[in-house]
Amino acid sequence: MVTTTIEAVLFATAKPIKLIDLRKHLDLSEEVVREAIDDIALRFNVETSGVHLMEQNGSVQLVSNATSGEVVAKFLKKEASGPLTRPSLETLTIIAYRGPITKPEIELIRGVNCSLILRNLLIRGYILEEQDKERLQPVYHVSHEFLQAIGTNRLEDLPEYEAFHTNEKVAELLNREPEEEV
């Protein structure tokens, strides 16, 4: 029943919905919502389904199956967005694999100032900026739009996501450098 309600809400809203909002509005526990979402994903995210469930950064959304992308794009008369520059692509990759991540951390990995690239990616809608209360600075993560553009329902489906996301060396680099500068 809960699953049905959530499925209906997701269909009707079309936009990404925060899991926490689902909990509040439907007065449900985190576990129940999680279970329902997993159930929907299990039923929808199969080859034969035209509709898939996308989850990123605590928000879920129903989207079209990526394998039908070409036909749907034609039908909607959607034109491909302009190509990304290599520095933008690199930055986007770092955010996708390591997000949520702060600007200094991105700059540490790329070894160069990234303000402009971040701004352009924000304008393109591929990344989102959020205030991190613990780190007291904005953190960046990729958006649903980004996942739609690369035809992936969740970041975990990216090649070698786990290896990258939890890479100890990266963590070491990110932890070490600020102390050096003191």
Binding site: H52, A66, G69, E70, A149, I150, G151
Partner: peptide, 18 residues
């Protein structure tokens, strides 16, 4: 890794929201 992401960008597989 960014090259893999680029490939996926260029690929026609993409999803659309309603």
């Amino acid at each position: 890794a960014s090259k893999l992401i680029e490939e996926r960008f260029d690929h026609l597989n993409q999803s659309f929201e309603r």
